[in-house]
Design a protein around this nucleic acid. Structure first.
Length: 324
DNA sequence: CCGACGTCCTGCTAGC
DNA sequence: TGCTAGCAGGACGTCG
């Protein structure tokens, strides 16, 4: 399931092979996936130069001539790569773009068995309407605490839901939402409006930290994702909560739990100790929270235990007190 | 207006 | 051993 780090990895790999090239022919375009219609799609992009590839969140924008854009989203099982057109076609190949004079691979191919991905041509006005700031939030690597605080402070939605809302911030999906929230020591089910400034700042820092590190490791391969070179990423080895149900928390050793209650129909993984809900959230009549974590030495996780708090007086287990 | 939920799609896996 | 039900989940439309 490609999220920001996986898409960024693919973009970095295909950029040098694709930018500046001209689409000589659309060798294959699946009616099932290409929009608005196959004839319009093929007619619109054939002969166009790919001037640049931009990425915002999980979306890839192939900037063509005259302000038009070929938009590609990998969905859950989408793969993008550049190969020689003589190579056999993988099953579920929905788009192949042929380049003239491309010694390092003359074909860009998009494969997507489950067809959750998108392949859409937009002219300039249609693109602005579809991907304007109201529709798609800033890339998660550009997220600022000011913006996040502004949104978080006026919604009762769970913080994980907010983090995964692409209009709020673009690029975070289920896996990285869990990893980021763990790094920030915030319960996924916590109502967003209960986060104070310090917690929001921590969340922002954890977002950048986790995503950057994942990019360094070429993303997370759970099942389908491979880079544009066809090899899996490495970040799954460094996941601290996602998929780790029952395994010890890297910080306090308590077993990681998995819950479907945070986001119905999706699993959320978290440490019930490090990411406990503050009691004031759990039980409105309870007095302000005190630290529940008995594991006093929790602050010595492998490298970076967390985005450490500003004031040195705050110990690793007082983070629960944020906002109260 | 906001938030919750159903829909799309198919390969893999758990369970019988 | 072979089969099938169920799960995975990003984005969006619809409903309350």
């Amino acid at each position: 399931m490609p999220e920001l780090p996986e898409v960024e990895t693919v973009v970095r790999q295909i950029r040098p092979l694709v930018e500046g090239r001209t689409i000589a022919a659309v060798a294959r375009a699946s009616r099932l996936m290409v929009k608005p219609t196959r004839p319009a799609f093929v007619r619109s992009i054939t002969g166009q130069p790919i001037e640049r590839i931009d990425r915002q969140g999980k979306w890839m924008f192939f900037r063509l001539g005259s302000g038009s854009t070929l938009v590609i989203h990998l969905g859950m099982t989408g793969q993008l790569g550049v190969t020689d057109s003589k190579q056999p076609l993988a099953p579920h190949t929905h788009l192949t773009l042929r380049f003239a004079d491309a010694p390092e691979g003359d074909e860009l191919r998009f494969v997507d068995p489950r067809r959750f991905g998108e392949l859409v041509y937009y002219d300039a006005p249609a693109f602005s309407a579809r991907f304007g700031p109201q529709k798609l939030g800033p890339d998660a690597l550009e997220l600022t605490p000011e913006r996040l605080l502004g949104i978080v402070s006026k919604t009762k939605r769970r913080i994980k839901v907010v983090l995964m809302d692409q209009r709020v911030v673009a690029g975070i999906g289920n896996i990285y939402a869990d990893e980021i929230l763990f790094d920030a020591r915030i319960a996924p089910a916590r109502p967003a409006e209960t986060l104070d400034r310090a917690a929001v700042r921590r969340l922002c820092r954890s977002t950048a930290k986790v995503l950057r590190r994942a990019i360094e490791h070429q993303g997370t391969s759970i099942r389908d994702y491979v880079t544009a070179h066809g090899v899996p990423g490495e970040f799954q080895k460094l996941l601290r909560v996602y998929g780790r149900v029952g395994l010890p928390c890297s910080s306090c050793k308590a077993p990681i739990v998995r819950s479907a209650a945070v986001l119905p129909g999706r699993s959320s993984y978290f440490c019930p100790i490090c990411q406990a809900l503050p009691e004031i959230v759990e039980n409105q009549t309870a007095p302000p929270v005190r630290s529940k974590t008995k594991a006093g030495k929790s602050g010595k996780s492998p490298d970076q235990s967390h985005s450490e708090s500003h004031s040195g007086s705050k110990s690793a287990d007082t983070w629960l007190d944020d906002g109260f």
